[in-house]
Amino acid sequence: MSSLLVFPGQGAQQPGMLHRLPAPTLIEASDVLGEDVLRLDAADALKSTRAVQLCLLIAGVAAARQLAMAPDYVAGLSIGAYPAAVVAGALSFSDALQLVSLRGELMQQAYPQGYGMTAIIGLDLATVEALLAQVHSTDSPVYLANINADNQVVIAGSDEAMNAVAGLAKARRGACTCVIKRLAVSVPSHCPLLEAPAKALAQAFARVTLNTPVLGYLSGSRARPVVKPDALRDDLAFNMCRVVDWRGTVQSAYERGVRLQIELPPGAVLTGLARRVFEQGTVMAFDGARLDTLQALLREEGSHQL
């Protein structure tokens, strides 16, 4: 049996999230960025895409260091792929901080307002794709962004287009249990609208050294392991404009023998999604759990020191 650490994406952020973490990683991040990162997790600061993404990177790396136990696999949803790559030994924390800072700026500059992401819970993928086809146009763009579970998907696009899809979803017969939730994400991630920023980020990635992961790195876009540094570079740079197949990623981990999943901070959204896949095993979130309990679970799965 194997273990998996997962790292959440944008939307999981919480005010004060960095203030609960050990100082060494925060000091290191502040030195690299040339700013006090403890200012990034204020409620007003988290209105910035750059601040949110940096907070999620720092929180994931800091918590993984606290665990001090290496899992068999890591995976991250969207920006969560960056702390996953750091923990896997493929990307240095310093380079990740610089790249994520740029990533957030590029995404925010591309779509400063009028766009975002919306979760649709209660309709299957085929139904949502049919609704997207009815609404999408050049002037009213909207795309599939995340496949989180069999009946939970996320769409991305203009506010107008997302509202139109939401209206159609609510009007469908039998959709009385359909839930529409606007996410705390101010840009249309994981769709073609972000191809230009992704290409700009890829240019920055070309100047960064990536290593072969020492742990199994599961791509949240491809739902399979990525081993070669060039493929990993492509996966990280372009994941902002590719559909996230989180359902497939968790299923892939389970099929590879993973029976322990631990979600790194903040929150427990990915924990809830994994319970739908894990017929056997243990699924837990770092937040709210005892550190020694999590370490003992990792040790039982044959993990070693990080």
Rank of each mutant, 00 (worst) to 15 (best):
L54V: 04
I79Y: 02
P24T: 06
A63P: 00
D36I: 10
A88P: 12
I79H: 04
A81I: 07
G34W: 10
A64C: 01
R65V: 02
A62T: 02
A70Y: 01
A81G: 10
M69V: 01
K47G: 15
E35R: 10
Q53V: 02
L56S: 11
Q53W: 05
D72H: 09
P83M: 01
Y82D: 04
C55S: 07
R50Q: 11
Q14C: 05
R20E: 06
M17S: 09
V87F: 07
Q66K: 00
S48C: 11
D41N: 07
L26Q: 13
L57H: 03
A70Q: 01
T25Q: 12
Y73L: 07
A85H: 06
G16P: 00
H19D: 15
S78F: 07
L56F: 09
S78I: 08
L26M: 13
I79V: 09
V87C: 10
P24M: 06
R65Q: 03
Q13F: 04
S30C: 14
D41T: 03
A29D: 14
L38T: 15
G16F: 02
L26Y: 14
I79Q: 03
L46F: 08
A70E: 00
A62W: 05
L56P: 11
L38M: 15
P22S: 08
E35L: 08
L56Q: 11
M17W: 02
A29K: 12
A64M: 02
T25L: 13
P22Y: 02
G34F: 09
G60P: 02
G34E: 05
H19Y: 14
A85I: 05
A75D: 09
A43L: 11
A75P: 06
A75C: 08
A63W: 00
L18V: 06
A51I: 10
D36L: 09
A29Q: 14
L21K: 08
P22D: 08
A29T: 15
Q14F: 01
R20P: 10
Q53F: 03
A81W: 06
R39E: 13
Q13G: 02
Q14L: 04
P24A: 06
H19P: 13
V74W: 01
A70R: 01
E35T: 09
C55Q: 07
A90T: 12
A64G: 02
I27Q: 14
L54G: 05
I79E: 06
G34A: 07
A75M: 04
V86F: 09
V74E: 01
R39P: 13
